[in-house]
Design a protein around this nucleic acid. Structure first.
Lengths: 222, 222
DNA sequence: AATAATATTTAGATTTGCCTAAAAATAAAA
DNA sequence: TTTTATTTTTAGGCAAATCTAAATATTATT
């Protein structure tokens, strides 16, 4: 089966937005794709007809099995190209995304398999995000940066990327230690700082830089 | 300026068909692009409005200066990707075209410049066709394979790729020597054989393999 | 030069993906 | 539980790129 660029972009957006199997709202999708809700409704009907999404009016949408498979293969293409751009063509990690957005829609299976082999089967892209393998499996790293968590995620602090005295001092002040359970309350887009909460303390804000240094392991829901 | 994939495909096709500045007919374009003449007329009007082609009803079309520049940049992208696919991803020379058809429409200037540098500024693609440089200039090789000539082209035999006894014997039989002036009469699509003519002989046919081995230099028109 | 054959263009539809404005359903608040 | 606000859908349109069928130009042939 072959899909249009627009269809692929919708699938990718739904994949990005649907965390924990909750349905994705029409408005949220419109915002993500920088389009109008009416257009989203139109497209959801088409995607439903193609059995890529589960959708009923006013109930939001989810990816079907087929849809998830497609989403993973698009993410795979995107991240392999990002890796290629950064590794082979000397792009900075913050320049790769835009170009990869275009390259990801070139769908030759052979191309992607050979690119993967050429790059040495990398498992993470330049942003640290996992690259699905050819069967769609992704390696979930046990340690991730605190910045990769999303609001309401809970995790256990398990390591530090930077162990300088300044850093340790800062964490000490905030009662953050190895083993501490952290919950993310909010992410502030304008500076990417996080409001987090730890047991028996009032919520507080930490900067993106600090959050980058804190490595955590996902915790099962409480 | 940004162009659609369809527009780029038309520009590329016109570039391919217009030899010696003769205008390209609507029908020829329709055939080349596997579409209907009516569709071609529609698109030619759009391309004219964008000043990419010179066109007046019933007179065929030519690329404008702008159009030629665009065509060269598309050809450049196509051939760089072909080189990449063959050189880095181990594609066979006859598998690269189709994939390059898709990759060529990714238009990031930075991407193409860096790809070019990464590949070491190659001047010919895996089929031996010249790759335009970033300013659109192409290196015209003095020696080309006989297969690259088109009907009515004249050239002087100037070298042999394969100098095995069998090959030399075959050419001897046909009175072809270094220095012989060859004119191509026809190309047969089904097996890519050529009907050629040399002075004081009746025309005869040679296979694609043979023609690949004969290296020639273009001769000025007689 | 008149007629036949071929090439090209116009006219009118279709599909895809998007839009605005208005209607309908759902969720939130009084 | 009404009323209000928000979300989502429907209805009707638009532009791009294509198509078929019919009309018009051009070229070739008696």
């Amino acid at each position: 089966m072959n899909f249009t660029i627009s269809e692929e972009n919708y699938i990718k957006a739904i994949f990005r937005l649907q965390s924990a199997g909750k349905p994705v709202s029409t408005n949220a999708l419109a915002l993500e794709l920088d389009t109008k809700p009416a257009s989203v409704t139109d497209m959801l009907k088409k995607l439903k007809a193609k059995k890529l999404v589960l959708y009923s009016p006013y109930q939001g949408c989810k990816l079907s099995g087929e849809g998830s498979k497609l989403a993973l293969s698009i993410v795979r293409r995107h991240r392999l190209w990002e890796y290629f751009l950064a590794e082979k063509l000397q792009f900075n990690w913050d320049e790769v995304h835009e170009v990869a957005e275009e390259l990801e829609h070139v769908s030759s299976k052979q191309l992607i398999e050979r690119l993967d082999a050429y790059l040495g089967f990398p498992r993470f892209d330049p942003h640290g995000d996992p690259i699905p393998d050819s069967s769609g499996k992704i390696t979930i790293p046990d340690l991730v940066k605190l910045t990769t968590l999303r609001p309401h995620d809970r995790a256990r602090v398990s390591g530090l990327a930077d162990q300088s005295a300044d850093m340790l001092n800062l964490l000490q002040q905030r009662n953050i230690n190895i083993g501490t359970i952290v919950t993310v309350n909010k992410k502030f887009d304008f500076d990417k700082s996080l409001e987090i909460e730890i047991p028996e303390n009032i919520p507080f804000v930490i900067s993106e830089q600090t959050a980058q240094n804190i490595l955590v392991r996902y915790e099962p829901e409480s």
